[in-house]
C-alpha cells in the first residue's frame, strides 16, 4: 500500500544541511498497522509527513496505493491526498466550526454538495461514537473527543490510509486506551492501513503489527509484534525503548 524507496529529507541549516531522514526504504502492506517509534528528534514525524508530501523528499520515490506521489503536480497531489487521512497531536480542528461541520470540511473541499455531505459526516461521527456531539464546537469537547472528531474528519473521504502523528501524546492514559480502541476498530472494520508515529512503546505495542525504530534520522530496526514471543531488539535505541517500560 505504501512504499518508500530510498527516501531522504534534509533541511538547509547553516553551512551543512541537516539530514532529518537518511535514505531509507519502507514498505507497509494493505490493511497493516505500522508503527514508527523513537525518541524526540529521531525524525519520525518528518518520515510520516513525507508519506503525504507535507514534507517534500530531497531524494527517493514515494508510492501510495500504486501511485507515485512525489512526481504529481499540485492538482493531482490534492486529489491523491483525499485518499490519505491524517490526524495530529494537537487535533487541528477548525475552532469556529461545529464537530459536524469539521467532518463536512474535507467532503466540501472535494467538491461534494447537498444532503449527502451532512449524511456522510453523521455516519463518520457515529463510527467514532460521537453522533450526539455533532453540534458541539471543539472548545466544548474533551481532548479525546476532539481527537475522535479528527479521526471522523480524516475518514470522511474514505481514505485507504490513515496517518497518525503522535495522536495520543496530548491525552491521558485512559483516553489513550479508548482512542487506540477506536483506531483498531477502524482498521479491522474498514481495512484502512494505519501508520502511527509515537514515542510510547505502550501505544505501539497495543496497536501495531510491525514497528520501525528510528534514531538520528535512520530506521535502525524493524520489529514484528505479531509473534507470540516478545520481540528481541538488537539495536541500542530499540533496547533502550523496550527497557524503559
Amino acid at each position: 500500500m505504501i512504499s518508500l524507496e530510498g527516501v531522504a529529507k534534509s533541511f538547509a541549516a547553516g553551512p551543512r544541511p541537516f539530514e532529518a531522514v537518511a535514505p531509507l526504504c519502507l514498505r507497509v502492506g494493505s490493511g497493516e498497522v505500522f508503527g514508527i517509534i523513537g525518541f524526540s528528534g529521531a525524525g519520525k514525524s518528518t518520515l510520516l509527513r513525507l508519506i503525504n508530501l507535507l514534507e517534500r523528499p530531497t531524494a527517493g520515490e514515494i508510492w501510495v496505493g500504486g501511485q507515485r506521489l512525489d512526481l504529481l503536480d499540485a492538482a493531482a497531489l490534492r486529489q491523491a491526498r483525499r485518499r490519505i487521512g491524517m490526524i495530529f497531536q494537537q487535533f487541528n480542528l477548525l475552532h469556529n466550526h461545529s464537530a459536524l461541520e469539521n467532518v463536512c470540511f474535507p467532503l466540501r473541499i472535494a467538491g461534494l454538495k447537498g444532503e449527502a455531505v451532512a449524511a456522510r459526516a453523521r455516519q463518520c461521527l457515529e463510527l467514532v461514537g460521537l453522533a450526539d456531539k455533532a453540534a458541539h464546537y471543539p472548545a466544548q469537547l474533551s481532548g479525546g473527543q476532539k481527537q475522535r472528531v479528527a479521526i471522523a474528519r480524516a475518514l470522511a473521504t474514505e481514505p485507504q490510509v490513515l496517518l497518525c502523528d503522535e495522536p495520543t501524546s496530548a491525552l491521558d492514559p485512559h483516553t489513550t486506551r479508548e482512542l487506540l480502541a477506536v483506531l483498531r476498530d477502524i482498521n479491522q472494520r474498514l481495512g484502512v492501513t494505519i501508520v502511527i508515529v509515537s514515542h510510547s512503546l505502550a501505544v505501539v505495542r497495543a496497536l501495531c503489527d510491525r514497528v520501525a525504530v528510528m534514531e538520528n534520522g535512520r530506521v535502525v530496526e524493524e520489529l514484528d509484534l505479531r509473534q507470540a514471543e516478545p520481540p528481541q531488539p538488537r539495536s541500542d535505541a530499540a533496547r533502550r525503548l523496550f527497557e524503559a517500560v
Binding site: L54, R81, Q90, L94, H95, N96, F105, P106, T157, L163
Partner: peptide, 27 residues
C-alpha cells in the same frame, strides 16, 4: 491561525483559495 490547522487542510487536499476562504478567514 495555528499553522497546524492550515497543515491539516493541506493534508486533506485543500487548494490555496480554499485554505484562504474556508480556513484562514473563518478561523
Amino acid at each position: 491561525v495555528p499553522r497546524g490547522v492550515v497543515e491539516a487542510a493541506e493534508a486533506m487536499g485543500a487548494s490555496v483559495p480554499q485554505i484562504v476562504f474556508k480556513v484562514l478567514l473563518v478561523e
